[in-house]
Design a binder for these strands. Sequence first.
DNA 1: ATTCTGGATTTTGGATACAGAATCCTTTGT
DNA 2: ACAAAGGATTCTGTATCCAAAATCCAGAAT
Lengths: 210, 210
Amino acid sequence: MKPIEKKSARDQVIISLRKAIFNGDLKNGEEITQEEIAKILNVSRMPVREAFYALEREGLLLTQQNRRVIVKGVTEEDIKDHYDIRAMLEGEAAAKAARLATDLKDLEEINKEIEKAVQARNTDEYIVANEHFHRTIWKLSNSVRLQSFLDQLWSGLPPHLAEMVTEQMGKAHSEHQDILEAFRNRDEHAARELMMSHIKRSKIDFLKIF
Amino acid sequence: MKPIEKKSARDQVIISLRKAIFNGDLKNGEEITQEEIAKILNVSRMPVREAFYALEREGLLLTQQNRRVIVKGVTEEDIKDHYDIRAMLEGEAAAKAARLATDLKDLEEINKEIEKAVQARNTDEYIVANEHFHRTIWKLSNSVRLQSFLDQLWSGLPPHLAEMVTEQMGKAHSEHQDILEAFRNRDEHAARELMMSHIKRSKIDFLKIF
DNA sequence: ATTCTGGATTTTGGATACAGAATCCTTTGT
DNA sequence: ACAAAGGATTCTGTATCCAAAATCCAGAAT
């Protein structure tokens, strides 16, 4: 049995704020205070305070020297930046994973789930399985830093819009197959290159929609 | 006049804990509690709590599923990991900076400071100026994410030991010159490559001492 | 009218308080 | 002797409280 994880108030605040920023409820440059948010979300200032701190690291908020906090909406430049860095880091993670991974059981398993989702044209399931696929590779890389950074990156961008996903599910899935094949061959170099181009391609597709 | 920045208790706790981990006062695997640290540093649990959260992202602490926090000392594998990632990120930062930077005044200035420190064999001054040099490049890259990640990386490793620095000051300085030259020519590609090999070389030197 | 000044107001950082979760430890039953 | 139960203890997460910092605003001085 896997332990049930209950979300802390802080994490819930983080999630709520991210959503609000992504869907435009909180606009770029807008100034927000701890108390204001605390009141809206019906928690005390303390979890909000910590959430602000976390979101600042993700680049979604900015504390000015006056201590006031302003919202940093997602710009096109941001998205390019996000994908450029992610391509490098996930490439590195894939290379490390290909070198270290002796046990690809989990990854093969997830791959099958993706397969199913693609065939069923089930976008929601696909999104979940896809994230799972990537996160598993990070984990296989066995680098805390890579995991931490990629986690921050992944959370810092709006979830892939459904329209984008349906369009590219097939493409992405076949790229995943190639990556998996590189893993089976323990081919570090190929794993890195394939992962990087996989993400660079996503970047282009994402930008088209944005 | 530049505004005076005063450190928050949280930041001081972060710094103290880092030091304690680096010099071995807190050993790998040791379990620490918020209250214990708060008592030692003579602050309340609140800043300690936030410091734990921050240090976890840097990879120096680990919160277990039980909520207990344990110390993750720096291993050789960690150092390799650190430098590998840093090489990529600083390479990217250098490339972006070379593309965007119109004004190299600050960087040239800092370069002269380094020059002075090298000639005077002044290790302390060198260390400060060197960090300044790198940070300035990150800033010129104009990417919040790169800055944030590199900041986390830079803080997560013990400061370069004095012995290491004296030995390699000259080498590093001449590498800096080459990087600066690439900037003057706005040569993205060269900037990235030179920065990457600069850091890969540091990695080797650091590992020799560790 | 514009700038300056000093107090009222807001907001933050940090301390303290309290309830619930996790762990420890003693007791009880077999 | 050993395992299970359950109460005491420890520790964390969140709420509340307080003092210091920042901002705002009205009136005085130029």
